[in-house]
Computed example of a mutant assay.
Amino acid sequence: MIRLPLLFAFTLTATSTLATASETRQADAHEHGHGQLTIAIAGAEVEMEIEIPGMDIVGFEHAPETDAQHKAFDAGKAKLTEGDSLFSVVGEAGCALKETHFHEEEDHDHDHDKKSSEAEHDEEHMEFHVSYHFSCEDTAKISGFSFPFFKHFPNSEELDVQIVSPKGQFQFEVSPDEPALTLN
């Protein structure tokens, strides 16, 4: 299929832009409540990729240790697999979720200044990194996106959304108070 390389080109552009933003964000303090979502639209395909702190999804930011934490982790991961109940395409595009892929969950070790206290030293921050693949009848009919995501994950306060599409590149912030965006 000729259009598939185009999707990868869009995804690569979006990922490069997201990587730069992510590097900048990681250089700053770890920020709970704030995730990043990249959306690439090309041909009949929509690819979404989210990076979100573990605190937003499961209520803690380290690898699960107790039985209760393991249950919360499994429940959070199960909710994240349901991309079509977290992200909705607005318009008559006829999109359906075809695949969900979890990238390795990441624990980010933050080395603090040697003068910092023992409690702060070797702090870990878990993040979830998930990709979603949607197949659509007509992506030209996508007029926006809504985010029921916030109803499922009330610890999440904001998603920085980057969209790459044939219409151009767009950047939005969505939140529980404004859980939708419109493409013009």
Rank of each mutant, 00 (worst) to 15 (best):
Val58Thr: 13
Asp122Phe: 09
Thr81Ser: 15
Leu97Gln: 08
Ala140Met: 03
Ala19Ser: 14
Gly35Trp: 09
Val58His: 03
Gly83Trp: 02
Val164Tyr: 04
Asp28Tyr: 00
Gly76Ala: 05
Ala40Cys: 11
Ala42Met: 00
Gly33Phe: 05
Tyr132Val: 01
Asp111Ala: 10
His121Asn: 10
Glu178Ile: 10
Glu82Phe: 01
Gln171Arg: 13
Ala19Asp: 12
Gln162Ser: 15
Lys167Leu: 13
Asn155Lys: 15
Thr20Cys: 03
His62Arg: 11
Asp109Asn: 09
Pro176Trp: 12
Gln69Trp: 02
Ala180Leu: 02
Asp74Asn: 13
Ala19Met: 12
Gln36Gly: 07
Lys151Trp: 01
Thr182Met: 05
Met48Cys: 05
Pro154Ala: 06
Asp56Gly: 15
His112Pro: 11
Arg25Pro: 00
Met126Tyr: 01
His112Val: 11
Ala96Ile: 05
Ala63Gly: 10
Ala93Val: 11
His34Arg: 11
Ser165Thr: 13
Ala68Gly: 03
Leu6Asn: 04
Glu106Ala: 13
Ser135Met: 08
Thr20Trp: 14
His70Cys: 04
Pro176Ala: 11
Ala27Cys: 08
Asp113Pro: 00
Cys136Lys: 04
Glu99Pro: 06
His121Lys: 14
Glu99Gln: 15
Lys151Tyr: 05
Ser156Ile: 01
Phe10Gln: 11
Tyr132Met: 03
Ile41Phe: 05
Ser88Tyr: 02
His152Phe: 13
Asp56Gln: 02
Arg25Trp: 05
Ala21Gly: 01
Phe128Gln: 01
Gln169Leu: 10
Glu123Val: 07
Ala140Thr: 15
His103Met: 11
Asp113Arg: 05
Ala21Thr: 04
Gly76Pro: 14
Glu45Ala: 15
Ala44Phe: 06
His32Ser: 04
Leu183Ile: 14
Ala78Gly: 04
Ala42Gln: 09
His62Pro: 08
Phe87Arg: 11
Gly59Glu: 05
Ser117Glu: 09
Glu92Lys: 13
Thr11Lys: 12
Lys115Gln: 03
Gly35Ser: 06
Thr81Phe: 09
Glu123Asn: 08
Ile163Tyr: 05
Asp67Gln: 11
Arg25Ile: 05
Tyr132Thr: 00
Leu80Asp: 11
Phe150His: 04
Pro5Cys: 00
Gln26Glu: 03
Glu106Asn: 08
Gly83Phe: 07
His101Ala: 03
Glu120Arg: 10
Asp67Ser: 05
Lys151Leu: 09
Glu123Gly: 06
Gly168Leu: 11
Ala42Glu: 13
Phe60Leu: 02
Ala27Gly: 15
His101Phe: 04
Leu181Tyr: 01
Ser16Ile: 07
Glu61Met: 05
Glu106Gly: 08
Phe87Ser: 12
Glu105Ala: 14
Thr66Arg: 07
Thr13Pro: 00
Ser143Pro: 02
